[in-house]
Simulated assay, not measured.
Amino acid sequence: MAGARIERLITSGKFSLDGGTWDVDNNVWIVGDDEEAVVIDAAHDAGAIARALDGRTLRAIVCTHAHNDHIGAAPDLATWTGAPILLHADDLPLWKQTQPERAPDGALTDGQRITVAGAELTVLHTPGHAPGAVCLHAPGLSALFSGDTLFAGGPGATGRSYSDFPTIIASISERLLSLPGDTVVHTGHGENTTIGAEAPHLQEWIDRGF
């Protein structure tokens, strides 16, 4: 796809919600070529992300959802690069909890297409972990960027505010498991998986209330 490639940067920091705080490592995904890129989930460390971009034009900062560990570096990165921050409107209440002074620049919508370096990323609205959670499907790269909707081993957590287990199961079942089995799932935390590896376990997740 015109030289487009996927790079992973791991950043570390805190996730805070509902009065609790946890240490977390986040995957920051950079999709692009030597000239331009998009960042998916600007987590924790804007300086580290800027260094990884290494002078490339940043076309957009895409937020899979608005938990603070996924958006904390977005405002500074946007200021430094001039790139717009994009977030699904249903996650604005979560965004405002930790970023009340700076609104996103644009809204992600289901079916929206983001193009960078010849690669096309389609926005899939996949609520459950958060109301405005989205995944990004890049068929030309055989890739899905799942945020915290789907991990190696099961769905994202739904035990906190703004989340819902039946909703995340429906999102995964209806929006993700129909993708080609060899689609690589690039997750918000931890290691990659594939759609084919996760699809057989849907009923197990339901039975376990994962």
Rank of each mutant, 00 (worst) to 15 (best):
M1D: 09
M1R: 08
M1H: 10
A4S: 05
I6W: 06
R8E: 05
R8M: 08
L9W: 08
T11P: 02
G13T: 08
S16M: 12
S16L: 12
S16W: 08
S16E: 15
G19T: 10
G20S: 15
D23K: 15
D23S: 15
N27I: 01
W29M: 00
W29N: 05
I30P: 01
V31I: 15
G32K: 04
G32W: 01
D34H: 14
E35L: 14
E36D: 14
V39L: 04
V39D: 01
I40S: 01
D41H: 13
D41N: 15
A42R: 03
A42C: 14
A43D: 07
H44P: 05
A46D: 08
A46H: 09
A46C: 09
I49A: 12
A50M: 12
R51F: 09
R51V: 11
A52W: 04
L53V: 00
L53A: 03
G55E: 09
A60F: 02
A60M: 02
I61M: 07
C63V: 00
C63D: 02
T64N: 06
T64L: 03
A66V: 06
N68D: 15
D69S: 15
G72D: 13
A73M: 07
A73G: 09
P75M: 05
P75L: 06
D76P: 03
A78K: 00
A78R: 03
T79V: 13
T81Q: 03
G82Q: 06
A83P: 02
P84N: 05
P84K: 03
I85V: 14
I85Y: 02
L86D: 02
L86E: 04
L87I: 00
L87M: 04
L92A: 05
P93W: 01
R102K: 07
A103M: 12
A107F: 10
T109R: 13
G111F: 00
G111N: 03
Q112H: 02
R113Y: 00
G118H: 10
A119C: 07
V123G: 04
H125T: 11
G128A: 11
A130M: 07
P131V: 04
G132L: 03
G132H: 00
G132Q: 06
V134P: 01
C135K: 03
L136Y: 07
L136F: 15
H137I: 02
A138H: 02
G140V: 02
L141S: 07
S146N: 08
S146W: 03
D148F: 03
L150R: 03
F151C: 09
A152K: 15
G153N: 14
G154I: 09
P155L: 10
G156W: 01
A157K: 11
S161M: 10
S161C: 08
P166Y: 09
T167V: 13
I169C: 11
A170L: 09
S171D: 12
S171P: 11
S171M: 11
I172W: 08
I172K: 08
I172E: 09
E174G: 13
E174Q: 15
R175V: 00
S178T: 15
S178E: 13
S178A: 14
L179N: 06
G181N: 12
D182G: 06
T183Y: 04
H186Y: 11
T187R: 05
G190V: 06
G190M: 06
E198G: 09
A199Q: 15
A199H: 13
A199I: 06
P200E: 10
H201Q: 09
L202M: 11
Q203P: 12
E204W: 13
E204I: 13
W205F: 13
W205E: 08
I206Y: 10
R208E: 14
R208S: 13
F210T: 12
